Amino acid sequence: MSVQACAEIVRNGDPDRFLATMAAPPAARTILFPLYAFNVEVTRAPWVTKEPMLAQMRLQWWRDLLGGPRSAKDPARHEVAAALGFLDAGSAALLDGLIDARHWDIGTDPHADDAALDAYLDATAGNLAWTAARSLGAVEEDAVRRLARAAGLARYLAALPALKAAGKRPLTDDSPETVRGLARRYLGDMPRARSLSRPARIATLETWQARPLLTAILRDPARVERGAVGLSEGGKRLRLLAASV
């Protein structure tokens, strides 16, 4: 699969990461678009069926696919998996952990506690961002993961109303006080992107909304329940421009 085809998957399935990747240098897009296309496909897997067993089989299928040869010359490979031929064993293991964490999306139980939510966000958003960063040559794993977890929380809180409508229990306690506490804790743990190397900054462009979104939630946690977490299109683009510069 070409990078352009992966870009179309990201454009349709994850438009914010599409915008962030288009702000990255062209050479980096050959890494980022296949990774984000993979993430779209895996994230979608638990939601395309209401049968838990079928959802588990789809995730296992991706694990099996990821574990095999990632050669674009092999016609038996899935197209997105074939585009991930640049992955080394360490990155493949990170994405395997991401798939494993997505099994939580199949059920309806909330995360047991803050530590369980932290682990979920680290295995999903954190593993994805660190795979991108290490593939681009970055070495600052802790800082990249902290930025990615914050962005993951912002996305997670924005999705709360939709998750609850689908019968999920995203948080054991989704009171405004608990939501504010989460936003405060993750904000306090975010490093400044300008302190990172250039490869790490490129890999974490996709986190550009995390700070303003979590700041808004901290000020008014009830916006989560109202489904009012988000920036205007103009605000998104201005902040992304500032982050990319």
Rank of each mutant, 00 (worst) to 15 (best):
Ser2Gln: 06
Val3His: 00
Gln4Pro: 00
Ala7Lys: 11
Pro15Ser: 11
Leu19Asp: 02
Leu19Val: 01
Ala20Phe: 05
Thr21Gln: 07
Pro26Phe: 01
Pro26Ala: 11
Pro26Lys: 01
Ala27Met: 08
Ala27Leu: 13
Ala28Val: 05
Thr30Leu: 12
Leu35Met: 05
Tyr36Thr: 00
Glu41Asp: 02
Val42Cys: 06
Thr43Gly: 15
Arg44Met: 02
Arg44Trp: 00
Thr49Phe: 04
Leu54Met: 15
Leu54Ala: 14
Met57Ala: 14
Leu59Met: 10
Trp61Asn: 07
Gly67His: 02
Gly67Cys: 02
Pro69Gln: 13
Arg70Gly: 13
Lys73Cys: 00
Asp74Thr: 07
Arg77Gln: 14
Glu79Phe: 06
Glu79Gly: 12
Glu79Trp: 12
Ala81Asp: 05
Ala82Tyr: 04
Leu84Gln: 11
Gly85Gln: 03
Gly85Pro: 01
Gly85Ser: 09
Phe86Pro: 03
Leu87His: 10
Leu87Ile: 12
Asp88Gly: 15
Ala89His: 05
Gly90Gln: 03
Gly90Asp: 03
Ala92Leu: 08
Ala92Gly: 10
Leu98Cys: 04
His103Asn: 06
Trp104Gln: 15
Asp105Thr: 04
Ile106Glu: 00
Gly107Met: 09
Pro110Arg: 09
Ala112Asp: 12
Ala112Glu: 14
Ala115Cys: 02
Asp118Thr: 05
Asp122Val: 10
Thr124Asp: 01
Thr124Glu: 01
Asn127Gln: 08
Trp130Ser: 05
Ala132Arg: 06
Ala132Ser: 13
Ala132Gln: 09
Leu136Met: 09
Ala138Gln: 12
Glu140Pro: 03
Glu140Asn: 02
Asp142Ala: 13
Asp142Gln: 12
Asp142Gly: 04
Asp142Glu: 13
Asp142His: 09
Asp142Ile: 01
Val144Met: 06
Arg145Trp: 11
Arg146Thr: 00
Arg146Phe: 10
Ala150Cys: 07
Ala150Ser: 13
Ala151Leu: 03
Gly152Gln: 01
Gly152Cys: 08
Ala158Arg: 15
Ala159Gly: 06
Ala162Ser: 14
Lys164Ala: 15
Leu171Tyr: 15
Asp173Thr: 06
Asp173Met: 06
Asp174Thr: 05
Asp174Cys: 15
Pro176Glu: 11
Glu177Val: 12
Gly181Lys: 00
Arg184Lys: 13
Arg184Val: 15
Gly188Asn: 03
Met190Asp: 09
Pro191Ala: 04
Arg198Ala: 14
Pro199His: 02
Pro199Arg: 05
Ala200Met: 07
Arg201Ile: 05
Ala203Asp: 08
Trp208His: 15
Thr215Ile: 05
Ala216Asn: 02
Ala216Arg: 09
Arg219Asp: 13
Arg219Asn: 13
Asp220Trp: 02
Pro221Tyr: 00
Val224Cys: 03
Glu225Gln: 14
Arg226Gly: 02
Val229Glu: 09
Leu231Thr: 02
Ser232Asp: 10
Glu233Ser: 12
Glu233Val: 10
Glu233Leu: 12
Gly234Ser: 12
Gly235Glu: 13
Lys236Ala: 01
Arg237Glu: 00
Leu238Gly: 10
Arg239Gly: 13
Arg239Asp: 00
Leu241Asp: 01
Ala242Gly: 09
Ala243Gln: 09
Ala243Pro: 04
Ser244Asp: 00
Ser244Pro: 00
Ser244Gly: 08
